[in-house]
């Protein structure tokens, strides 16, 4: 988690992601499914942002797997 915080500090445009990290850290001991949901939302948010920057069209109800596939394909 520290590594991710460090990366986000380096690149301020990703700063909104700290909300998810805070939530994951908050829930990881007490409510794992919430921590997991937030981890998924974190990944989704990064993948969405990458697709947006590469002007890749993303369907509204796309699955996380497909979305990540699209984000990786941008590279």
């Amino acid at each position: 988690m520290d590594k991710l915080r460090q990366v986000i500090e380096e690149y301020p445009r990703w700063q909104d992601l700290t909300v998810y990290i805070d939530r994951i850290e908050l829930f990881i001991e007490s409510d794992f499914s919430s921590a997991q949901e937030n981890a998924k939302a974190l990944l989704e948010s990064i993948a969405q942002e990458i697709c947006k920057q590469f002007t890749i069209e993303v369907e509204k109800n796309i699955s996380i797997n497909k979305l990540l596939g699209k984000a990786f394909n941008c590279f």
């Binding site: 988690m1 590594k3 991710l4 990366v7 986000i8 380096e10 690149y11 990703w14 992601l17 994951i24 990881i28 794992f32 921590a35 997991q36 981890a39 998924k40 974190l42 990944l43 990064i46 993948a47 990458i50 920057q53 990540l68 984000a71 941008c74 590279f75």
Partner: peptide, 23 residues
């Protein structure tokens, strides 16, 4: 607990990779 930790840490690693690679 170990599996849970693994799940979260691997997710975070992918996040770090995506951001670093993108930047």
């Amino acid at each position: 607990k170990t599996e849970q930790e693994f799940l979260i840490s691997s997710t975070v690693t992918v996040c770090v990779f995506l951001i670093r690679y993108h930047e």
